[in-house]
Simulated assay, not measured.
Amino acid sequence: MIEVLARRTAGLVLAALGAVVPVVAYTRLDAWDAELAGRADPSSTGLVDMLVGGIGIWGIIGTGLWWHRHRTTMWAIWTRWAAFPGLSLAVFTCLSIASRRNSPIALAIGAGLTAACWGLSEAVRFVMTRPVTDGLIASRLEIPFRVRGLKARLCVRHDRLVLDSLGSRRKRSRDAVAVPWQALRSIELVDVEQETVCRVLVFSGLPEANTREFDVTAGPALHILGTARELLVPVTNEVGRAVLRAVEARSAGVEVDEGELTEDEWRRRSGVRRTNALTHLQRRAGVHYRTDYRPYRLIPVAGFLLMPLFALSGMTLSLVTGSKNWQEQFYVVDGAVNPWNVAILATASIGFLYVLYRLVVKSFLSFMQGQDYIEAYPEPPARAKTGTVPRSGKRKKR
């Protein structure tokens, strides 16, 4: 769709600006520092070398944006990570100039640059999620909505409705609860006549899920009923109508799965082991209690397996750019490479990429599927229950 392509293009342009602007600012600040110090050469590392040197970081950021290509709320976070390397260097240079050269204006420049990078990340969030048009609803992009009077956030994804930030705005993934379309029985905009409490179940790793509570003040609210959970989410009338419109469009044609699962099947889908099957180290680590756990131990494994490809890429870039520093680092002598080194690195890259897929990528994808599942089904179905939300107020028509 043209609208989705335009939103993603605008988001990528703003994210690229957030990454490049601090790097350019750093080179200018370094030149200014050299001028104040009376040095002829500001730095041996130029703008091109810095951008090429950060290709590994740009690759990670690009991978993150691709992985979250539908999760628009994550684009602002990746934009901030993209800006962080250059921004940290620029701010450090500003602090150095202010302290050593007695130039307070450098502090204002650093603060302004930080605000500009933050503003670009917020601009990415805006162009990806607002306004909520028919084209956006028809796409697979995530649509976030504010929740009235709470720090939580309600997100309409392409396959589910998610309420996150129950624990912290800083860690959005903590205590996230979801209702996928195949588990959605009904969603209605209701009037809550008096303040009440909504209780939701979150995964605990034990036979019984943990309970989280939040206050629902009087006013409009969305009453969401699923096969494994029930939610009462306070919203404004405008947000409630927009959510209903998005949910109706995205859940159209999806049949509700009324079949009951066995506990063994629940554990197979979630990937959760029985408590008495956990090892002593697993019990001490407590990772099976966390709904926001991620297997970060896979990162150093992935980094090691990508080393041959990184070396081969660096060798190629050193030849293309003609950078003497890069050629020294990647053993390119006088603009020529040893064919045997290229053959060995190419063979190792292919083999290591296969191992990377089997040990890291496949394991991570399987883990994330289990995480998505337990957000919707926090405990074995034999113990799953609804009715945690007291009835209040009169229901309105959809």
Rank of each mutant, 00 (worst) to 15 (best):
I143Q: 14
K151A: 13
G314I: 04
L12S: 12
F126T: 09
S173V: 05
R28N: 03
R391N: 12
R172A: 11
S139R: 05
A221N: 06
L278T: 03
W66T: 11
W67F: 15
A83Q: 07
Q371K: 13
L47H: 02
R174S: 12
Y296C: 01
I97L: 08
S88E: 07
I97C: 04
W266M: 03
G18N: 04
R391W: 09
M74K: 04
A90F: 00
Y289N: 12
I55S: 15
I344G: 03
R391Q: 12
S366I: 11
L278A: 09
Q369V: 07
L89G: 08
R245W: 06
M128C: 10
R383W: 00
M368K: 13
W181E: 04
D264V: 09
Y354S: 14
A176N: 06
E258K: 10
G53S: 10
T236C: 08
V389K: 07
G86S: 06
T388I: 00
L184N: 03
T211S: 09
M307I: 13
T63C: 10
S186C: 03
F214R: 10
L356G: 13
P390K: 11
V233S: 01
F304E: 03
R398H: 05
V48D: 04
G219F: 05
E213G: 00
A98E: 01
G219K: 05
T72W: 05
K385Y: 10
L225I: 15
Q329D: 07
V179S: 05
F203P: 00
T196S: 14
P378N: 10
K397G: 06
L136V: 09
D372G: 08
L107A: 02
R250I: 08
V333D: 13
D41M: 12
V162P: 00
G205W: 06
T27N: 08
R212H: 07
N102K: 06
V23A: 10
R229Y: 01
V272A: 12
